[in-house]
Nucleic acid binder design. Structure first.
Lengths: 140, 140
DNA sequence: TATTAAGTAACAATTATTGTTACATGAAGA
DNA sequence: TCTTCATGTAACAATAATTGTTACTTAATA
């Protein structure tokens, strides 16, 4: 299935931002991520709206962290990107009131909720500073 | 993201098959699931290849269970449909040997593996007979 | 032999991210 | 002030997967 790599991408960008010292332009970040500056703006916009980064226009402008990495968890970023379901597995629309269909969907939903809860709980435990330090590059 | 509802669909179909008594045609099943007979054949083909169902052509033909529901788990069916990843979250291609990118991807991969393992472990615990009995319709 | 139904190839529809072009807006510098 | 830089958006093509559909072949049986 088509994968959503926005989380992976934006985490990469944020940790780079932390090292960069000064604001990085969408163009800079695009080059780091191997993508387009417009894609960068689009993705970073979601984080800006939640107060994790700020953007400045014009000369010497660009993106900066609005909080230290130690104050941001994987969960925060995941949520900021929009909390669409994490699974490629979907349920059928229950059009025809079939009790079997309902039963199957309920059972799958339960198991998926449980796995999603585990995933999100883990995401809450990991700050971006944790991530950054994992490969010996320490943040503030 | 686009969801894959094949699992939900095919479970629904298998439990109906169990009640049906005689073989059900792709057309019958398509009507139950609100979809096309070709879609049914396509999806059921994966299960046939793994020996969970059999198909007979011609008059009075159609699909039948090749094993009792109590011998088939959610995991079996999930696996038979092709073990593509369960998550919509994807990692970036690591093109440029950036240690930050690697670190981010490794961290996400670990957490996702853990959640996927939990999901699959739960899938292994549930037989289709369990599912069928959940709403008072008992299987063999 | 006609009919039934699976098997399968081929292609359009759908739906999400991703990629791209184009242009408006605002800030900084000369 | 005017030019340049960079974000902010809108609009649309590209991509990639399932799903939907048509058409045809193959096999079994009444």
């Amino acid at each position: 299935m088509r994968k959503d790599s926005r989380l992976s991408r934006v985490l990469h960008a944020l940790i780079h931002l932390d090292h960069h010292g000064k604001p990085a332009t969408s163009d800079d970040i695009g080059k780091m991520l191997g993508t387009n500056p417009v894609v960068v703006r689009r993705t970073m916009a979601a984080l800006r709206e939640q107060g994790y980064v700020s953007a400045v226009k014009g000369h010497n402008g660009g993106w900066s962290l609005a909080r230290p990495l130690s104050d941001i968890t994987l969960y925060d970023i995941h949520k900021a990107l929009g909390d669409s379901s994490v699974f490629t597995i979907g349920l059928t629309d229950e059009h025809n009131n079939c009790p079997i269909e309902h039963g199957v969907n309920n059972a799958l939903r339960d198991v998926m909720h449980e796995a999603e809860a585990l995933l999100l709980a883990r995401f809450k435990q990991v700050t971006l500073a944790n991530l950054a330090s994992e490969f010996g590059q320490h943040s503030v």
